[in-house]
Nucleic acid binder design. Structure first.
Lengths: 96, 96
DNA sequence: CCACTATATAGGAAATCTACTATATAGCGG
DNA sequence: CCGCTATATAGTAGATTTCCTATATAGTGG
């Protein structure tokens, strides 16, 4: 069965800015939203929208710290997706 | 560095019909295009368009056998993506 | 409370995606 | 060559994505 959650995670990752955000978050425990605005060449509201997509896909969680909001990566959905794709890549497909 | 090839693979996978096609192909060495048309509830040209997306992402290859065209899965890009996402899920991020 | 910083939301334009119908192309069998 | 099946392409409508500017909301410090 093709999980709609899995599709949502794939869609969330399938954008250069969002995958870039995930990559940065993978390397550090927590990053403030404003750091992403500096890193990528898009406006602050655009970054905010991308972060929302990642949040709704369950890939990140937030924590307010004073004025700023810190994002951290949820590694479980990434690991689950990696495991599933890995299984497909070695031939274990179509498990209903 | 965020590879644009990787983004293309993610985008190709991020659709229920295309992921379904990949799942079916993962379970069998080769499947005729017409079998997909039976399997999914979309028209033949729509299936053909989805197969084109998968082809252009390097996820499948084709072989003509008489009138029909057989699709098979390229497992390398899937394995590469799985490995990359797996690395992210255990903290190895941002390798420039 | 006011000004300031950080972040999110609203509204809208342009680009892209997804699906359809109609049609073209490729190979097979008579 | 003709008709048939299998697949791809063209053209197009509608939905979704992506980005922007403008504005709202939330928290901090004077």
């Amino acid at each position: 069965m093709v999980s709609s959650v899995e599709i949502e995670v794939l869609r969330a990752l399938a954008h250069p800015v969002r995958l870039g955000i995930v990559r940065k978050l993978a390397a550090e425990p927590e990053i403030c939203a404003c750091d992403f605005t500096d890193e990528f060449e898009v406006s602050q509201p655009t970054i905010s929208a991308h972060l929302k997509v990642l949040r709704e896909a369950g890939l990140v969680t937030t924590r307010r710290r004073g004025t700023t909001i810190c994002y951290s990566l949820n590694r479980e959905p990434l690991a689950a997706l990696a495991a599933d794709l890995g299984a497909l890549s070695v031939g274990e497909g179509a498990l209903t």
